[in-house]
Design a protein around this nucleic acid. Sequence first.
DNA 1: GTGGTGATGTCAGTCTGTGACATCACCACC
DNA 2: GGTGGTGATGTCACAGACTGACATCACCAC
Lengths: 189, 189
Amino acid sequence: MGRWEPDARGRLMAAAIELSLEHGFEQTTVADIAARAGLTERTFYRHYADKREVLFAGPIDLHALLAESIAAQADSTSPIDAVATALDSVSGLMQQNREGSRLRQRVIDANPMLRERELIKLASLGAAMADALRARGVTDPTASLTAEAGIAAFKVGFETWVNDATDAHDLQHHVSECFDRLKAVTAGR
Amino acid sequence: MGRWEPDARGRLMAAAIELSLEHGFEQTTVADIAARAGLTERTFYRHYADKREVLFAGPIDLHALLAESIAAQADSTSPIDAVATALDSVSGLMQQNREGSRLRQRVIDANPMLRERELIKLASLGAAMADALRARGVTDPTASLTAEAGIAAFKVGFETWVNDATDAHDLQHHVSECFDRLKAVTAGR
DNA sequence: GTGGTGATGTCAGTCTGTGACATCACCACC
DNA sequence: GGTGGTGATGTCACAGACTGACATCACCAC
């Protein structure tokens, strides 16, 4: 793997996951990751802003996807349904790589610093959805609350999905079920 | 401020907030903070696990407070109401220091790393509430979703509270209002 | 084949965080 | 009033995360 092999970013990400699964994320140094990818530490930081980011920078822009999905829906659609639909399309993309998600999640769950990064990524997606809702005239705090509620449903649904050893249902099903439960819960049931 | 002045922790926290307001959190080094508190960098790390923690380690154990509040409520109380009541008591404590909260929040909002830490602290409080709900027989994913929904309401309510220049309402009012909005939102309104 | 361009390498440096050990103030006990 | 224990603090050395400045390399257009 020489200096000019293609897809340096992808190699770095793969190396980071491999090494973290083997020895843990903390025990893996950036120099280790770069070396396995055939690169140097300095080059790692040209591709990723910091060590944790290598596990979170996916190929698709979920912010844009969510924003466009919400913007595209009929004006008559309620905010919560718009959010549910947007997250459903994201779920559709994610579940194409269930095993990859499981490996990645195993690394993240084992490290508090990575959990922090995961939470701010989710919060950032929530902020994008809240913006999209405001753009269609939903006022605050309703816009923020709807987005946050959606993120909560997605988070819990995703967790159930990666931990479900039976593979009985897909991510969309789990998230959709969480939306239903959330509606029941806030109704006092 | 010599070596054995009392309340080293409090001095470090005050120094951190002061310096962060003056020059920004990033620009402030741990050595700077320790020096203003009349201590050394090494001693800072004996009181706080890392640089960010100095802004988040409060004197009261909110986890225990939330757990006890939820456990103390009547069995007939619905999960969402139990969570709302628990967060109401936390709000009661917080609003005794509105100006302090505003200064602290100004520092946090200006720094993404601090926002990360804030989110994991909130998530941790949510996990404590979910545990308390499970202890009273609420099953998953309802327990997790209820706790997450409560955190969402608290988060948005808190934000409104610190940014409300009129001081017209207290934190409890804002959070309670967010719970009501949340119920309306998930009902499709 | 020449020059420009973007990706990579090299090097030096700051800051965060930690282990090991020394020092200091205070307190209990004789 | 000395003496030893205890906990908080200081000192030192060091690994690892990041960054700025500059050099080098592969490739492509002309």
